[in-house]
């Protein structure tokens, strides 16, 4: 079974390709969605095309699937239109699939299930990465605010931190918000770090 992967995210495409290879599929091509990607797909004549749902080129792809003479058999979206549960899961995960007509459902299903799992794992990874980035940024903000207090009020680090924390508690705000406000104020007063 020849599988084409088109994805805005190169990283996600790689993750999906790896998963498919591990599962024993070996005719896989990752096709970048720009320039002559339609011509490349026509040459490859895939049985299944996996493309991220929000990809800007889906209308072009569907047009190609509708008119292409290079593909002997028409391609329809998703495995089986009656399988609403799976289609819903695919859309929630952000993946869409085009499958050549006549390909048996039981052969395609594992491909789509795997794509859904990998897409979900990828977005979880993205969320975690974003959370880690936020945490790092917040720690930096906190460090800057502490440094300002230590310098301007002659506090030791634990005292500076305690002051930020009690202020946050009194105002019902997050400690990082208090730190940001302090940094802004210090900037306005011309405090150079």
């Amino acid at each position: 079974m020849r599988i084409a992967i088109i994805d805005d995210s190169g990283l996600r495409a790689t993750i999906l390709e790896e998963g498919l290879r591990d599962a024993g599929f070996d005719e896989i091509e990752v096709v970048p969605a720009h320039g002559a990607f339609v011509a490349r797909l026509e040459r490859m004549a895939p049985d299944v095309v996996l493309i991220n749902l929000g990809n800007a080129n889906r209308d072009s792809l569907e047009e190609m699937l509708a008119v292409s003479r290079a593909l002997a058999r028409p391609i329809a979206m998703f495995v089986d239109q009656s399988d609403d549960g799976m289609i819903g899961a695919a859309i929630d995960a952000g993946v869409s699939a085009y499958v050549v007509d006549g390909l048996r459902k039981d052969r395609v299903k594992p491909v789509l299930e795997l794509a859904i799992r990998r897409f979900n794992a990828f977005s979880k990874l993205q969320t975690e990465l974003a959370a880690a980035r936020t945490e790092l940024a917040e720690r930096k903000t906190l460090d800057r605010a502490k440094a300002i207090l230590m310098r301007n009020r002659g506090l030791a680090e634990p005292e500076a931190y305690a002051l930020l924390r009690t202020t946050a508690m009194k105002q019902g705000r997050r400690i990082v918000e208090v730190a940001e406000a302090l940094i802004t104020a210090a900037d306005l007063f011309g405090d150079e770090r």
């Binding site: 929000g54 990809n55 800007a56 080129n57 889906r58 792809l61 979206m77 819903g88 859309i91 929630d92």
Partner: peptide
């Protein structure tokens, strides 16, 4: 907001 009509269509047809 979507970029392609196919995506808007799928979100509608499959209830997102």
């Amino acid at each position: 907001r979507d970029t392609s009509w196919a995506t808007a269509r799928d979100r509608l047809v499959y209830g997102q």
